[in-house]
């Protein structure tokens, strides 16, 4: 039951977020509200990752995976916090500030990719039999890769062209889009691991991480939409960013609860 509530929490959060955005109606308070809630979901994601880290011993594969995810979340929160300082705001940011912001963004993306990659590799290390056989897994992988390319591909191409034209500030956009494509492709092993473990407690962390990755896919799609396609300037991308971060938070909690339950039952 506790695990079901974990799965519901990000959806409830999204519903409350949407209700508040409508209530604020695009007024002056909307900007600070969005920034504040973004920091909140980043903090929750960090908490989830490090709670998961806390239940593993040094040298455990999954401890390293959660450590990467947590470090990535810390880096991106640091970037968001720096952006609040006058020195780092778009109008005032000099080349040094831009390098720091881009560096943190790239660091975060690479760390998140490393974490998702390690989680996705677990099925192989644990010799988990993926459902659907080789062809089933290949079909899901192909569908995911096409979706990932369709959603993040144009951004990667645009960023790469800008960098090639000498605009180094676009490097973060390019790296971010490429990392998005790679990590979205990893949805397949995560999803199939969760399905394979169904009926067992350990399907929850993988299922919730999959939900986080799917939310990032939707975030990328929403962020790529032209402003005219988001009615009334509704911050659709923020809804999906919140979902992605909150699913990472609850995935960390699910990992913690599942392992505690093993120890309690076996103790």
């Amino acid at each position: 039951m506790r695990f079901r509530w974990l799965a519901v929490f990000p959806l409830l959060y999204a519903a409350v977020f949407i209700a508040i955005v409508w209530w604020l109606g695009g007024g002056e308070a909307l900007g600070p509200f969005i920034i504040g809630q973004r920091l909140l979901v980043r903090l929750l994601a960090i908490a989830g990752c490090f709670l998961a880290v806390s239940v593993f011993a040094r040298g455990d594969h999954l401890r390293t995976a959660w450590l990467w995810l947590g470090s990535g979340a810390v880096a991106i929160l640091s970037r968001d916090l720096l952006r609040l300082l006058p020195l780092f705001q778009p109008a005032n940011a000099g080349p040094g500030a831009l390098v720091i912001l881009s560096g943190l963004g790239i660091l975060s993306n690479v760390a998140l990719l490393a974490g998702v990659w390690m989680l996705a590799r677990s099925w192989k290390m644990a010799a988990i039999s993926l459902p659907g056989g080789r062809y089933g897994a290949l079909a899901v992988a192909l569908i995911t890769a096409v979706l990932a390319l369709a959603v993040a591909g144009p951004g990667a191409l645009k960023g790469a062209r800008a960098v090639a034209g000498g605009d180094w500030s676009s490097l973060i956009l390019c790296v971010s889009a490429v990392v998005d494509i790679l990590s979205l492709c990893l949805i397949t092993p995560l999803l199939l691991t969760a399905v394979s473990l169904r009926g067992g407690l350990f399907s929850w962390p993988w299922g919730l991480i999959t939900a986080s990755q799917l939310s990032w896919l939707l975030y990328d799609a929403a962020a790529a939409l032209a402003p005219s396609l988001t009615p009334g300037g509704f911050p659709l991308a923020e809804v999906f960013r919140g979902l992605a971060q909150n699913y990472l938070f609850v995935a960390g909690l699910a990992q913690l609860f599942a392992i505690r339950q093993v120890r309690r039952s076996a103790g």
Binding site: I128, V262, A266
Partner: peptide, 17 residues
């Protein structure tokens, strides 16, 4: 296998049980 999925400590506890 269990160690890869739940860490060595939990795996050892479960296998002891």
């Amino acid at each position: 296998y269990l160690g890869a999925l739940m860490g060595r400590v939990a795996a050892d506890d479960l296998l002891l049980q």
